[in-house]
Computed example of a mutant assay.
Amino acid sequence: MTAPTINGTRYPQPIEALLPAARALDLPEGEAFPSRNRLMREFRIGAPKAGELLALLKAEPATTPADTAEPDATDPAELPVAPEPAPLAEPDPTPAPEVMPSEPDAEVTPVSRPNTPTPATPARRAVVWPVVLLALPAFVAIWSGWVGLGGLTGFGVVHPLPGIWDSFSINSAITLPIGVETYGAYALYVWLSGRVPERARRFAKWSAIASLLVGALGQVAYHLLEAAGVTAAPWWITTAVACLPVAVLGMGAALAHLVRTHD
């Protein structure tokens, strides 16, 4: 809105000339008088003059331009246009849900929604007890094969506590089935569990396959030597079997460290 001027200029204007224009300003709903900042902005006047103009507006009785104007003295097109009233908001035809008072002993029934997915029924775990039946005969065959091969390669009865418990003896051949087969089963579990870092899973995979292959070759070697009536295994079989406890210790320690890493 262009501020009214005197003689078409914007030089300082008297309060009396600004009063009608200030009275005709469009005010927001709920405000009876324009603010001092708006008077300063609309008429390019300073704060003292705007305060004086605002005091005059508040001092005079609230009258409309139609009440003060003489009949046919002012062109109707020049009168300020009253703002159109804002349309009333139509009420929402949807009734609000009725809230029933809660009873202490009332059972709450959940209300299902059309788009709510139904929780899947947890699948029943597969039983593992048949593995015990499968492992018993395999344990007997593997144990006897490794102990027999150990006897052909120099493993036998030793006294691990000389001077402390001289009567205590143990057959060192049992270290072969305990070490090789136990590590193979553990590495297989780590590989298939899916709960270890990728490096540990990759190491467990290849070491489990290697351990099971070595176990199978050990069984084959024992049965071939036993069928041929050999009482002492060849040197290369003895060398390989003698290195198995050390290899199992190294692979077991490495796998244990890899399982605990987070890199």
Rank of each mutant, 00 (worst) to 15 (best):
Ala187Tyr: 02
Leu225Trp: 04
Ile209Leu: 13
Leu152Trp: 02
Ala216Ile: 12
Ala200Met: 05
Gly148Val: 11
Leu213Gly: 12
Gln219Ala: 11
Leu217Asn: 07
Val131Lys: 04
Ser211Ile: 01
Ser207His: 07
Ile209Glu: 13
Ala123Ile: 09
Leu161His: 09
Leu149Thr: 01
Pro197Glu: 11
Gly194Tyr: 12
Gly215Val: 04
Leu161Asp: 00
Gly218Ala: 15
Ser144Arg: 11
Gly194Lys: 11
Ala216Cys: 07
Arg195Ile: 05
Arg113Ala: 06
Arg199Asp: 15
Arg201Ala: 15
Trp206His: 14
Val111Met: 13
Trp146Tyr: 14
Gly218Asn: 15
Trp146Gly: 00
Thr182Met: 09
Gly215Pro: 00
Leu149Phe: 02
Trp206Glu: 14
Leu134Gln: 08
Ala135Leu: 14
Ser172Ile: 04
Val190Trp: 00
Leu192Lys: 15
Ala227Glu: 11
Tyr183Ser: 12
Val111Asp: 09
Ala173Pro: 09
Gly151Leu: 10
Leu213Lys: 10
Arg199Met: 05
Gly145Ile: 00
Tyr186Leu: 13
Thr118Ala: 14
Leu176Ala: 13
Ser112Val: 10
Trp165Lys: 15
Trp146Lys: 09
Ala185Gln: 08
Ala187Met: 07
Ala216Arg: 01
Phe168Gln: 04
Phe139Asn: 11
Phe168Pro: 09
Pro160Ser: 03
Ile178Trp: 01
Ile209Val: 14
Ala228Leu: 10
Ser193Gln: 10
Phe203Thr: 08
Leu217Val: 12
Ile174Thr: 10
Gly215Gln: 07
Val157Ser: 06
Gly150Thr: 09
Gly148His: 00
Pro130Thr: 15
Ile174Asn: 02
Pro162Asn: 01
Val128Gln: 06
Leu161Lys: 04
Ala123Trp: 05
Phe203Ile: 04
Asp166Thr: 08
Trp129Ile: 10
Val220Gln: 03
Leu149Gln: 11
Thr116Phe: 00
Thr182Pro: 06
Gly145Tyr: 00
Val158Ser: 04
Trp165Tyr: 08
Asn115Gly: 04
Thr182Ala: 13
Ser207Gly: 03
Arg195Lys: 11
Val147Tyr: 00
Leu176Arg: 01
Ile170Lys: 09
Ile170Met: 12
Arg202Glu: 15
Leu192Thr: 10
Pro130Phe: 01
Gly150Arg: 01
Leu133Gln: 04
Val196Lys: 06
Arg124Gln: 10
Pro114Tyr: 05
Gly148Lys: 03
Ala141Gln: 13
Pro119Ser: 01
Arg202Leu: 12
Phe203Asp: 05
Arg199Tyr: 03
Thr153Glu: 05
Leu212Gln: 02
Leu152Ile: 02
Gly148Phe: 00
Tyr189Thr: 14
Val157Tyr: 01
Val196Gln: 14
Arg113Thr: 09
Ala200Phe: 06
Val157Arg: 07
Phe203Arg: 05
Pro197Leu: 02
Ser172Trp: 00
Thr153Lys: 00
Glu198Asp: 15
Glu107His: 01
Val131Leu: 12
Ser172His: 15
Pro122Tyr: 00
Pro110Cys: 10
